[in-house]
Design a protein around this nucleic acid. Structure first.
Lengths: 351, 351
DNA sequence: ACCTGCTGTGGGAGCGTTCCCAAGACCTGG
DNA sequence: CCAGGTCTTGGGAACGCTCCCACAGCAGGT
């Protein structure tokens, strides 16, 4: 079943059927209806390959998960991002292709990318969670391939991006600790080459300054985004007697709470804690962890929207979108436990 | 740059270039080499759409994540499955397309499927984590569309599938509890319409029988795969004084441990516990949770392999693959803590 | 009466492959 | 020396669509 055949059955030409399928205005009402009935009756669907070949658009977008997909398995960042991206794709009648390198073969990567990009498989791609030095970014940028970054990039201001407003988020979190009356507020950050970690540190400093406080260098330490790293960082910090801390990830925050407790320091009575990410374990922790939740699926949704816009209007100014976060108040910052913050139990559909 | 142009530069015809690209044997060594050099030099890649149109194969496979992708966000099942599927796809020079319905529009589903399937976007699909009554399965089966199920299906023995050997896994877990000397072993299962839960229950019964024990109905209760459900189930069970329990999910197991502890029952001294799934929180729990780990990425890998086989040989007998599981011994069953089972800290790459 | 513009429709050309048949070159054995 | 094969190469004909131009029909202004 193809355009020609539908046309034959409806007594019109291939061109007219094509116009009906593509919602072209220049078809009379009567003809349109007749054609649509035939399409319905025979369950006709246009052939994707033929369409792509003729129109030079595939209506397929790629999402590139860089190297170590293994490292993002421990929290739901990746699935939520995909869900958001799929939402936008469905709405725009596009499809989403996964671009990941094989777990056992980190080398085939470049090659795979060139094959997919060179063969015009895709109309554009979203790069999730990239590292700064990734050569693919330079390559794509130079070949003027349509793409969007999730997470802002310090260089390349001309590449469109979506990011969470980490700066505002941290500032907001620290402001909340200040409202609780704390004054010696510590910070456990990430490695200094992570943009998100830098931004969060920036927000921390700003919040202190706006409260007329001077950031004390000894109160800000680096973690490595692991629970053990949070534990170690907290041990360092304890010597300087903070009354509250803002931690750049929940995982580290849980480690920090452990360290505090092991040192005989009660949370939140002696030490208020706010984390980042709202991982599933945060709600169930003892005490439940106040944290900054990120609109991850919105990140995916907006990334696709911006990409589609980019494809349609390649010469527009690059968009840089910063999405707001949400501070989820639980026990660890000293707020009372609320109903909505209780453990949900983590529903899961098994095999 | 297309076949014709490469041919012109190499002084051969379009057909010959096509043969070189597709590794057709009937090309002389000299010509092959000459063509390959031109291809390299000009970075030629065959156009995917034209290929699909002419060959009626897209080299794209779909992975269908049914309705509530939201429910599988809380554990890494989905990303790992995808990773495995991508591995196989990369190895076979295929691509992976995500098929999910929008989070806010559970209705557009059927429509989306028909569009994608009808338009010959894909060569076949893998259905992950399906429910028994899913109409899509019937539809695909009737239209003889190539597809593979992840998770076995009680009806439709003629649909190829990959599954974890839940029965053997549960049997093995219960046998381990028996080895610890326990005799009153309880079971917390899932809803009775979940195939995985049924299989696990079956394994539990078999293990008891093989040890010459009679399964006691009061010692087996249903949970709903939430932490709260595990808590409630354990409360029921405690009245019958089990000395060990096998729980069909880690999430429920954590709830059960809570309930036991709240009732003054020590784990593992008074009650040994084994869970299922090896979720990240299992290693970090107090006590660390003995659990059955599933080879999730292998599930994805094998599903694609079987699908490709199915596409190539549609009339072969349907394959039903059962993958083995691994019992991970930690504290909660009474085993000593081992080095490898300690919390890893959940590394995560932030934005 | 004419030209002009606008609307709806048809059909040619082309997108870049693959598949198939034809044909030339070359070999082999009688 | 030639019939019959194999090996290599070339080119026509799809595949099913979109894009563009052509053209019929009709209304309105001159």
């Amino acid at each position: 079943m193809n355009l020609e055949e539908v046309g034959r059955l409806a007594g019109v030409s291939r061109s007219t059927v094509s116009r009906v399928v593509n919602n072209d205005a220049r078809v009379s009402g009567a003809v349109r209806e007749r054609v649509q009935i035939i399409i319905q009756e025979h369950n006709y669907h246009p052939n994707a390959a033929a369409r792509s070949l003729a129109s030079r658009r595939t209506r397929i977008l790629g999402v590139l998960i860089p190297q170590a997909a293994g490292t993002i398995f421990s929290d739901p960042f990746f699935p939520q991002l995909i869900q958001g991206a799929v939402d936008s794709c469905n709405a725009a009648d596009h499809n989403l292709l996964m671009l990941m390198n094989s777990s056992n073969d980190p080398h085939g990567r470049e090659q795979m990318h060139r094959r997919v990009l060179g063969g015009h498989h895709l109309d554009g791609i979203v790069i999730a969670s990239s590292v700064v030095e990734d050569p693919i970014i330079t390559y794509l940028h130079e070949t003027r391939y349509p793409f969007v970054l999730v997470g802002r990039h310090p260089r390349y201001r001309e590449i469109p991006s979506v990011d969470v407003d980490n700066r505002a988020a941290a500032q907001n979190a620290v402001a909340h600790l200040l409202e609780h009356g704390h004054r010696r507020i510590g910070f456990i950050g990430g490695l200094p080459n992570m943009i998100a970690a830098i931004d969060r540190y920036g927000g921390y400093v700003t919040a202190l300054q706006e409260a007329g406080l001077l950031p004390e260098p000894a109160l800000a330490v680096h973690g490595n985004f692991t629970q053990a790293g949070g534990y170690a960082a907290m041990q360092t910090l304890l010597a300087h007697r903070p009354d509250a801390i803002c931690v750049a990830s929940d995982t580290m925050a849980l480690g920090a709470i452990h360290a505090a407790r092991d040192a005989g320091c009660r949370v939140p009575e002696d030490l208020a804690v706010i984390g980042f990410d709202n991982i599933p374990a945060a709600a169930g922790a003892q005490p439940s962890l106040t944290t900054v939740a990120q609109p991850i699926s919105d990140l995916g949704r907006e990334a696709i929207r911006i990409l589609l816009d980019r494809i349609a209007q390649p010469d527009h100014h690059p968009i840089h979108l910063l999405l707001p976060t949400q501070l989820i108040l639980r026990r660890s910052c000293g707020c009372p436990e609320t109903a909505g913050s209780s453990p949900t139990g983590g529903d899961r559909q098994p095999l």
